[in-house]
Design a protein around this nucleic acid. Sequence first.
DNA 1: AATCATTATTGTAATGAATTCAAATTTGAA
DNA 2: TTCAAATTTGAATTCATTACAATAATGATT
Lengths: 139, 139
Amino acid sequence: MNSNLNLDNIALLKAAGIKPSLVRLKVLTYVKNVTSHPTVDMIYKELADEIPTLSRTSIYNTLLLLTEAHILRSVSIDGDVMRFDATMSDHGHFRCSKCGKIYDLDFDTRIDKVVLPSGFKETRRDLFIYGNCPYCEGQ
Amino acid sequence: MNSNLNLDNIALLKAAGIKPSLVRLKVLTYVKNVTSHPTVDMIYKELADEIPTLSRTSIYNTLLLLTEAHILRSVSIDGDVMRFDATMSDHGHFRCSKCGKIYDLDFDTRIDKVVLPSGFKETRRDLFIYGNCPYCEGQ
DNA sequence: AATCATTATTGTAATGAATTCAAATTTGAA
DNA sequence: TTCAAATTTGAATTCATTACAATAATGATT
Protein backbone atom coordinates (compact mmCIF):
# COMPACT_ATOMS: atom_id res chain seq x y z
CA MET A 1 0.00 0.00 0.00
CA ASN A 2 2.75 2.39 0.91
CA SER A 3 4.79 1.47 -2.12
CA ASN A 4 1.72 1.77 -4.29
CA LEU A 5 1.11 5.20 -2.95
CA ASN A 6 4.70 6.06 -3.64
CA LEU A 7 4.31 4.93 -7.22
CA ASP A 8 1.24 7.12 -7.51
CA ASN A 9 3.12 10.03 -6.04
CA ILE A 10 6.05 9.51 -8.38
CA ALA A 11 3.66 9.70 -11.29
CA LEU A 12 1.96 12.69 -9.75
CA LEU A 13 5.20 14.61 -9.40
CA LYS A 14 6.41 13.67 -12.86
CA ALA A 15 3.14 14.82 -14.35
CA ALA A 16 3.71 18.19 -12.70
CA GLY A 17 7.24 18.39 -14.08
CA ILE A 18 8.80 17.89 -10.66
CA LYS A 19 11.64 15.46 -10.20
CA PRO A 20 10.52 12.89 -7.63
CA SER A 21 13.42 13.11 -5.21
CA LEU A 22 13.48 11.28 -1.91
CA VAL A 23 12.64 14.33 0.17
CA ARG A 24 9.79 15.34 -2.09
CA LEU A 25 8.29 11.88 -2.10
CA LYS A 26 8.55 11.49 1.65
CA VAL A 27 7.03 14.89 2.33
CA LEU A 28 4.23 14.39 -0.14
CA THR A 29 3.47 10.87 1.09
CA TYR A 30 3.44 11.98 4.71
CA VAL A 31 1.12 14.92 4.17
CA LYS A 32 -1.17 12.74 2.09
CA ASN A 33 -1.34 9.95 4.66
CA VAL A 34 -2.19 12.15 7.56
CA THR A 35 -5.27 14.18 8.40
CA SER A 36 -3.59 16.42 10.95
CA HIS A 37 -2.70 19.27 8.59
CA PRO A 38 0.90 19.02 9.70
CA THR A 39 3.26 21.93 10.24
CA VAL A 40 6.81 22.12 8.91
CA ASP A 41 8.01 21.10 12.34
CA MET A 42 5.74 18.07 12.48
CA ILE A 43 6.90 16.97 9.05
CA TYR A 44 10.52 17.52 9.98
CA LYS A 45 10.30 15.53 13.21
CA GLU A 46 8.48 12.70 11.45
CA LEU A 47 10.91 12.39 8.56
CA ALA A 48 14.14 13.11 10.41
CA ASP A 49 14.31 9.45 11.46
CA GLU A 50 14.19 8.19 7.91
CA ILE A 51 16.37 10.96 6.46
CA PRO A 52 18.98 11.81 9.10
CA THR A 53 20.51 14.63 7.04
CA LEU A 54 17.18 16.31 6.46
CA SER A 55 17.00 20.07 6.90
CA ARG A 56 14.01 22.25 7.56
CA THR A 57 14.92 24.37 4.56
CA SER A 58 14.37 21.36 2.32
CA ILE A 59 10.92 20.96 3.73
CA TYR A 60 10.15 24.62 3.18
CA ASN A 61 11.47 24.32 -0.36
CA THR A 62 9.49 21.19 -1.04
CA LEU A 63 6.25 22.51 0.38
CA LEU A 64 6.57 25.70 -1.64
CA LEU A 65 7.17 23.67 -4.77
CA LEU A 66 4.24 21.35 -4.16
CA THR A 67 1.97 24.19 -3.20
CA GLU A 68 2.79 26.16 -6.34
CA ALA A 69 2.13 23.03 -8.38
CA HIS A 70 -1.28 22.72 -6.70
CA ILE A 71 -0.42 19.30 -5.34
CA LEU A 72 -0.70 20.49 -1.75
CA ARG A 73 -2.21 23.59 -0.29
CA SER A 74 -1.13 25.68 2.65
CA VAL A 75 -3.57 26.49 5.41
CA SER A 76 -2.97 29.44 7.69
CA ILE A 77 -5.61 29.66 10.37
CA ASP A 78 -5.96 32.74 12.53
CA GLY A 79 -2.31 33.60 12.85
CA ASP A 80 -1.15 30.09 13.61
CA VAL A 81 1.85 28.42 12.10
CA MET A 82 1.45 27.41 8.48
CA ARG A 83 -0.07 24.00 7.95
CA PHE A 84 -0.36 21.82 4.89
CA ASP A 85 -3.20 19.86 3.42
CA ALA A 86 -3.32 17.28 0.65
CA THR A 87 -7.06 17.57 0.19
CA MET A 88 -7.35 19.76 -2.84
CA SER A 89 -11.08 19.58 -3.40
CA ASP A 90 -13.10 22.55 -2.19
CA HIS A 91 -13.56 22.36 1.55
CA GLY A 92 -13.42 24.41 4.73
CA HIS A 93 -11.58 23.97 8.00
CA PHE A 94 -12.75 23.71 11.57
CA ARG A 95 -10.36 24.39 14.40
CA CYS A 96 -11.16 23.32 17.92
CA SER A 97 -10.40 26.16 20.29
CA LYS A 98 -9.61 23.73 23.07
CA CYS A 99 -7.43 21.00 21.57
CA GLY A 100 -6.31 22.95 18.53
CA LYS A 101 -7.06 20.08 16.19
CA ILE A 102 -8.03 20.97 12.64
CA TYR A 103 -10.75 19.12 10.79
CA ASP A 104 -11.54 19.17 7.12
CA LEU A 105 -15.02 20.42 6.59
CA ASP A 106 -16.93 19.36 3.54
CA PHE A 107 -19.47 21.88 2.48
CA ASP A 108 -21.90 21.76 -0.34
CA THR A 109 -22.30 24.30 -3.05
CA ARG A 110 -24.55 26.51 -0.97
CA ILE A 111 -21.50 28.46 0.10
CA ASP A 112 -21.03 29.42 -3.52
CA LYS A 113 -24.07 31.64 -3.20
CA VAL A 114 -21.97 34.24 -1.46
CA VAL A 115 -21.83 36.84 -4.17
CA LEU A 116 -18.99 39.28 -4.71
CA PRO A 117 -19.61 42.90 -5.63
CA SER A 118 -19.22 43.51 -9.35
CA GLY A 119 -15.66 43.93 -10.55
CA PHE A 120 -14.17 41.55 -8.03
CA LYS A 121 -12.66 38.42 -9.55
CA GLU A 122 -12.38 35.41 -7.26
CA THR A 123 -9.61 32.86 -7.53
CA ARG A 124 -9.76 31.13 -4.17
CA ARG A 125 -11.59 31.18 -0.88
CA ASP A 126 -11.05 29.94 2.63
CA LEU A 127 -13.73 29.18 5.14
CA PHE A 128 -12.62 28.75 8.73
CA ILE A 129 -14.97 27.83 11.53
CA TYR A 130 -13.89 27.98 15.15
CA GLY A 131 -15.44 26.34 18.16
CA ASN A 132 -15.29 23.09 20.08
CA CYS A 133 -14.96 19.68 18.49
CA PRO A 134 -17.11 16.75 19.69
CA TYR A 135 -14.32 15.38 21.86
CA CYS A 136 -13.79 18.66 23.69
CA GLU A 137 -17.39 19.82 23.76
CA GLY A 138 -18.42 17.11 26.22
CA GLN A 139 -16.46 18.33 29.18
CA MET B 1 -17.13 65.11 14.41
CA ASN B 2 -13.85 63.81 15.68
CA SER B 3 -14.55 64.96 19.19
CA ASN B 4 -17.99 63.43 18.98
CA LEU B 5 -16.50 60.17 17.92
CA ASN B 6 -14.08 60.40 20.78
CA LEU B 7 -16.96 60.94 23.17
CA ASP B 8 -18.64 57.88 21.74
CA ASN B 9 -15.46 55.90 22.12
CA ILE B 10 -14.98 57.04 25.68
CA ALA B 11 -18.44 55.79 26.48
CA LEU B 12 -17.77 52.59 24.58
CA LEU B 13 -14.62 51.86 26.54
CA LYS B 14 -16.20 52.74 29.86
CA ALA B 15 -19.12 50.45 29.13
CA ALA B 16 -16.64 47.65 28.59
CA GLY B 17 -14.90 48.40 31.87
CA ILE B 18 -11.82 49.75 30.12
CA LYS B 19 -10.26 52.97 31.25
CA PRO B 20 -10.27 55.33 28.27
CA SER B 21 -6.63 56.31 28.23
CA LEU B 22 -5.09 58.42 25.49
CA VAL B 23 -3.43 55.50 23.73
CA ARG B 24 -6.57 53.42 23.81
CA LEU B 25 -8.72 56.22 22.47
CA LYS B 26 -6.30 57.06 19.70
CA VAL B 27 -5.91 53.45 18.64
CA LEU B 28 -9.63 52.78 18.73
CA THR B 29 -10.48 55.98 16.90
CA TYR B 30 -7.91 55.32 14.22
CA VAL B 31 -9.00 51.76 13.54
CA LYS B 32 -12.60 52.87 13.45
CA ASN B 33 -12.00 55.74 11.04
CA VAL B 34 -10.11 53.70 8.53
CA THR B 35 -11.17 50.91 6.23
CA SER B 36 -7.68 49.60 5.56
CA HIS B 37 -7.62 46.94 8.27
CA PRO B 38 -4.41 48.46 9.62
CA THR B 39 -1.49 46.50 11.00
CA VAL B 40 0.28 47.27 14.26
CA ASP B 41 2.97 48.98 12.26
CA MET B 42 0.51 51.16 10.37
CA ILE B 43 -1.14 52.17 13.62
CA TYR B 44 2.20 52.89 15.21
CA LYS B 45 3.44 55.05 12.35
CA GLU B 46 0.17 56.96 12.24
CA LEU B 47 0.00 57.72 15.95
CA ALA B 48 3.69 58.24 16.63
CA ASP B 49 3.36 61.85 15.49
CA GLU B 50 0.65 62.63 18.00
CA ILE B 51 2.14 60.55 20.81
CA PRO B 52 5.91 60.86 20.54
CA THR B 53 6.57 58.45 23.39
CA LEU B 54 4.36 55.75 21.95
CA SER B 55 5.69 52.22 21.94
CA ARG B 56 4.66 49.29 19.81
CA THR B 57 4.09 47.24 22.93
CA SER B 58 1.37 49.65 23.98
CA ILE B 59 -0.36 49.10 20.69
CA TYR B 60 -0.12 45.35 21.07
CA ASN B 61 -1.49 45.64 24.59
CA THR B 62 -4.29 47.91 23.52
CA LEU B 63 -5.31 45.80 20.56
CA LEU B 64 -5.36 42.68 22.69
CA LEU B 65 -7.52 44.42 25.24
CA LEU B 66 -9.95 45.78 22.69
CA THR B 67 -10.10 42.48 20.87
CA GLU B 68 -10.86 40.55 24.02
CA ALA B 69 -13.57 43.07 24.82
CA HIS B 70 -15.07 42.48 21.36
CA ILE B 71 -14.67 46.13 20.46
CA LEU B 72 -12.26 45.31 17.66
CA ARG B 73 -11.48 42.06 15.94
CA SER B 74 -8.21 40.74 14.59
CA VAL B 75 -7.98 39.52 11.05
CA SER B 76 -5.23 37.15 10.02
CA ILE B 77 -5.34 36.42 6.32
CA ASP B 78 -3.27 33.66 4.81
CA GLY B 79 -0.20 34.00 6.96
CA ASP B 80 0.01 37.76 6.65
CA VAL B 81 0.68 40.15 9.45
CA MET B 82 -2.17 40.58 11.90
CA ARG B 83 -4.65 43.24 10.94
CA PHE B 84 -7.45 44.90 12.86
CA ASP B 85 -11.02 45.67 12.02
CA ALA B 86 -13.62 47.77 13.79
CA THR B 87 -16.51 46.28 11.87
CA MET B 88 -17.93 43.77 14.29
CA SER B 89 -21.00 42.70 12.37
CA ASP B 90 -20.76 39.39 10.54
CA HIS B 91 -18.80 39.83 7.34
CA GLY B 92 -16.08 38.29 5.22
CA HIS B 93 -12.88 39.65 3.77
CA PHE B 94 -11.55 39.93 0.26
CA ARG B 95 -7.87 40.34 -0.37
CA CYS B 96 -6.58 41.49 -3.70
CA SER B 97 -3.68 39.32 -4.76
CA LYS B 98 -2.14 42.19 -6.70
CA CYS B 99 -2.35 45.27 -4.49
CA GLY B 100 -2.84 43.42 -1.20
CA LYS B 101 -5.73 45.64 -0.20
CA ILE B 102 -8.35 44.10 2.04
CA TYR B 103 -12.04 44.80 1.56
CA ASP B 104 -14.89 44.09 3.92
CA LEU B 105 -17.33 41.77 2.31
CA ASP B 106 -20.92 41.86 3.35
CA PHE B 107 -22.65 38.60 2.91
CA ASP B 108 -26.18 37.67 3.60
CA THR B 109 -27.34 34.87 5.82
CA ARG B 110 -27.04 32.29 3.08
CA ILE B 111 -23.57 31.47 4.28
CA ASP B 112 -25.11 30.33 7.53
CA LYS B 113 -26.46 27.34 5.66
CA VAL B 114 -23.08 25.69 5.80
CA VAL B 115 -23.83 22.94 8.26
CA LEU B 116 -21.36 21.45 10.71
CA PRO B 117 -21.26 17.72 11.45
CA SER B 118 -23.10 16.86 14.63
CA GLY B 119 -21.17 17.41 17.82
CA PHE B 120 -19.27 20.44 16.53
CA LYS B 121 -20.10 23.68 18.29
CA GLU B 122 -19.43 26.86 16.36
CA THR B 123 -18.43 30.11 18.03
CA ARG B 124 -16.96 32.09 15.14
CA ARG B 125 -16.20 31.85 11.47
CA ASP B 126 -14.00 33.58 8.95
CA LEU B 127 -14.58 33.74 5.24
CA PHE B 128 -11.67 34.90 3.10
CA ILE B 129 -11.90 35.35 -0.63
CA TYR B 130 -8.83 35.97 -2.75
CA GLY B 131 -8.56 37.34 -6.23
CA ASN B 132 -8.27 40.68 -7.97
CA CYS B 133 -10.10 43.81 -6.96
CA PRO B 134 -11.78 46.05 -9.55
CA TYR B 135 -8.85 48.45 -9.65
CA CYS B 136 -6.31 45.72 -10.34
CA GLU B 137 -8.49 43.51 -12.53
CA GLY B 138 -8.54 45.98 -15.38
CA GLN B 139 -4.90 45.80 -16.29
C1' DA C 1 -1.72 68.81 48.73
C1' DA C 2 0.78 64.40 49.81
C1' DT C 3 0.83 59.51 49.93
C1' DC C 4 0.38 55.28 47.96
C1' DA C 5 -1.40 51.40 45.61
C1' DT C 6 -3.06 50.36 41.16
C1' DT C 7 -2.91 50.68 36.41
C1' DA C 8 -0.86 52.07 32.05
C1' DT C 9 3.07 52.66 29.25
C1' DT C 10 7.56 52.00 27.78
C1' DG C 11 11.75 49.79 26.01
C1' DT C 12 14.70 46.05 25.81
C1' DA C 13 15.32 41.35 25.23
C1' DA C 14 13.73 36.87 23.83
C1' DT C 15 11.13 33.81 20.86
C1' DG C 16 10.22 31.46 16.84
C1' DA C 17 8.50 30.92 12.11
C1' DA C 18 9.99 31.83 7.73
C1' DT C 19 13.45 33.36 4.30
C1' DT C 20 17.97 34.10 2.20
C1' DC C 21 21.95 32.48 0.41
C1' DA C 22 26.15 30.31 -0.50
C1' DA C 23 28.35 25.94 -0.05
C1' DA C 24 28.12 20.98 -0.41
C1' DT C 25 26.08 17.05 -2.30
C1' DT C 26 23.65 14.39 -5.57
C1' DT C 27 21.97 13.34 -10.03
C1' DG C 28 21.99 12.11 -14.70
C1' DA C 29 23.29 13.10 -19.34
C1' DA C 30 27.20 13.10 -22.52
C1' DT D 1 34.44 9.29 -15.81
C1' DT D 2 33.40 14.12 -16.29
C1' DC D 3 30.75 17.90 -15.68
C1' DA D 4 26.85 20.93 -15.52
C1' DA D 5 22.44 21.31 -13.48
C1' DA D 6 19.46 20.43 -9.84
C1' DT D 7 18.84 19.35 -5.05
C1' DT D 8 19.85 19.62 -0.33
C1' DT D 9 21.94 21.50 3.52
C1' DG D 10 23.04 24.64 7.37
C1' DA D 11 24.12 28.92 9.04
C1' DA D 12 22.73 33.58 9.21
C1' DT D 13 19.06 36.87 8.87
C1' DT D 14 14.62 38.95 9.08
C1' DC D 15 10.67 40.28 11.27
C1' DA D 16 6.23 39.95 13.81
C1' DT D 17 4.98 38.96 18.22
C1' DT D 18 5.55 38.12 23.18
C1' DA D 19 7.67 38.45 27.77
C1' DC D 20 9.00 41.06 31.27
C1' DA D 21 10.86 44.35 34.24
C1' DA D 22 11.22 49.27 34.92
C1' DT D 23 9.14 53.73 34.68
C1' DA D 24 5.30 56.88 34.56
C1' DA D 25 0.65 58.23 35.23
C1' DT D 26 -3.68 57.91 37.61
C1' DG D 27 -6.95 58.42 41.10
C1' DA D 28 -8.70 57.36 45.58
C1' DT D 29 -7.84 58.30 50.49
C1' DT D 30 -6.18 60.70 54.14
